[in-house]
Design a protein around this nucleic acid. Structure first.
Lengths: 209, 209
DNA sequence: GAGTTAAACGGACGAACGTTCGATAGATAT
DNA sequence: ATATCTATCGAACGTTCGTCCGTTTAACTC
């Protein structure tokens, strides 16, 4: 009974055979959770999709909850990892915020199904697993909030930080409901457009109304 | 067997005793769908919450699907009704767009659970019921898109209309994940803030980048 | 090639699911 | 007083659910 998991960079990270198979299963699970929702998806759906038996699947995880936990945890740690790497290349506050936006969109528009699972099954997990995911999410939020605060101080802007940061997340995360690469261009294009709206939106606000 | 429903203005509209009871049930259903999600919520949960038996509930609707349909349909028609009323009071394109935003937020921040059900259970309805809801949604989207287009022409602005309209919806609809009236102020306050970010965001864009 | 571990399986468990049937109490109409 | 209709109920139907037990095959190790 293998009970520790290792995570690498691409997809769900694969070293040993166990990791590779688990990765395959998590990818199938992501697709199914995306299509039917966590509650609407059954382990039997996953069994059909992955070609493994019901009992065979349970060799790789302990419960349906843990399945969702593994997916969400991997996504948060993975996008955060890339963010930290990308932020090293710039010191200018505006550029750094643009990097956050393009990192977020590049990562999640390349994984639209994962994006939906992350934002749609946001508060499904209860107990310890849910608490851990919420912690990761809060860390990611604060990365963005810090960048906005940095910019705000540098340019002496005036706005409610909480509100505008959550506006930015709204613009970015709502995308999974409408994005079509053929109509809307690639991730970099959308990142530039959202960055434009957001930065102009907060730049003009040096006075009250 | 009663098979036609009437809808009035407040909550779920109540004329006859039947309508009043149906309204009560739909309100309970909204709360439960909000808390557990459509798939995760059971008719038994609704039975417990409403104090009616399982079989007694089915006197008021034909299926769980129809329950969700009734909720979503009422919300769309109801918010649209108010919008049209409110738009009568202004002719200036910018004011009209601000009215759309404040109408949307006033309506949905007063019904946070309904807001979540509407955006969270967006694509669960299949078949004819789902198609009808999607039509209502498209109409509502176009109301907003037309207002943005109006403003764009008047002020000779330059941007991808589709992208910015969906950015606006993103900001507005993401709110159900974070809004706290004690921290973030009332609906009018949030509407002003989002309106500021959005309008400044699109006003500055008369050139390409 | 014997022995051990890893990986998968069939088949079942009890519980919960959406839905329906036939019965019934109260109200309304004749 | 009788008949009809509205609103409700208990009890069950057939499915599907997540999970687990015992066993078997496949893959290494020595």
């Amino acid at each position: 009974m293998a009970s520790t998991y290792s995570m690498a960079s691409t997809s769900f990270g694969a070293n040993s055979r166990f990791d590779r198979q688990l990765s395959r299963i998590l990818n199938h699970a992501t697709a199914i959770f995306c299509e039917k929702g966590y509650e609407g998806a059954s382990i039997r759906d996953l069994s059909r999709a992955s070609g493994l038996s019901l009992a065979g699947l349970y060799y790789y995880f302990q419960s349906k909850d843990e399945l969702l936990y593994l997916i969400q945890k991997h996504l948060f740690t993975s996008v955060m990892e890339r963010l930290k790497e990308n932020l090293k290349t710039a010191a200018d506050p505006e550029k750094r915020l643009r990097i956050f936006i393009s990192n977020h969109l590049a990562y999640f528009l390349a994984r639209p199904k994962a994006m939906k699972v992350l934002s749609h099954e946001d508060d499904v997990l209860k107990g310890a697993l849910g608490a851990e995911i919420r912690t990761l999410k809060r860390q990611y939020y604060h990365c963005c909030a810090d960048l906005v605060e940095e910019l705000k101080l540098t340019k002496k802007l005036k706005f409610k930080s909480r509100a505008v940061v959550l506006c930015l997340f709204g613009m970015m995360n709502w995308i999974h409901t409408w994005y079509n690469p053929r109509v809307d261009g690639d991730a970099a294009t959308v990142a530039r457009e959202i960055g434009n709206v957001f930065l102009r939106g907060i730049y003009a606000s040096t006075s009250g109304r």
